[in-house]
């Protein structure tokens, strides 16, 4: 299955950042975008340590959060430790982190900057 989570986009007309992809810019209705890169670092906006997890996940808990990359892209991802705080600087790693029905799934894994 093609996962559409590996690229972020910027509207060619108004500059609004879109992640993940969508067909039409939510801000101005334009349909043309340019691909923009993710930065290596980001800032943690919020997170939760989740104990009651869905079918298919065998961890005792997961920490999942939303980060804002330094160029403005915002994305959800897993966090390597629950010992974090809102506003903390994080390193963003694009990682193969799980398998769903035999399919390798890549996504964001954030860790506190040392």
């Amino acid at each position: 299955m093609k996962r559409k989570n590996d690229k972020a986009y910027k509207c060619k007309k108004c500059g609004r950042i879109t992640y993940p992809e969508r067909v039409v810019c939510l801000n101005c209705g334009n349909r043309e975008f340019e691909i923009i890169p993710f930065t290596d670092e980001c800032t943690l906006i919020t997170y939760s340590q989740i104990f009651q997890l869905p079918w298919g996940i065998n961890d005792r808990y997961l920490t999942i959060g939303v980060c804002k990359f330094d160029n403005g892209i915002k994305a959800m991802g897993r966090i390597t430790t629950p010992e974090v705080k809102n506003g903390m600087r994080m390193k963003a790693n694009w990682t193969l982190f799980r398998e769903i029905a035999g399919e390798d799934v890549w996504g964001w894994v954030f860790e506190p900057l040392k």
Binding site: R3, K4, N5, Y19, P20, I45, T46, Y47, S48, Q49, I50, Q52, L53, P54, G56, I57, D59, L62, I64, G65, V66, A75, M76, G77, R78, N86, R98, I100, V105, G107
Partner: peptide, 23 residues
Amino acid sequence: THPDAEYIYGITLPGMAGMFANL
């Protein structure tokens, strides 16, 4: 939730609510 940008991480509705509550 969004299949490619949220669901894959193992997010749950309680998890979304937890992140919202945190802020």
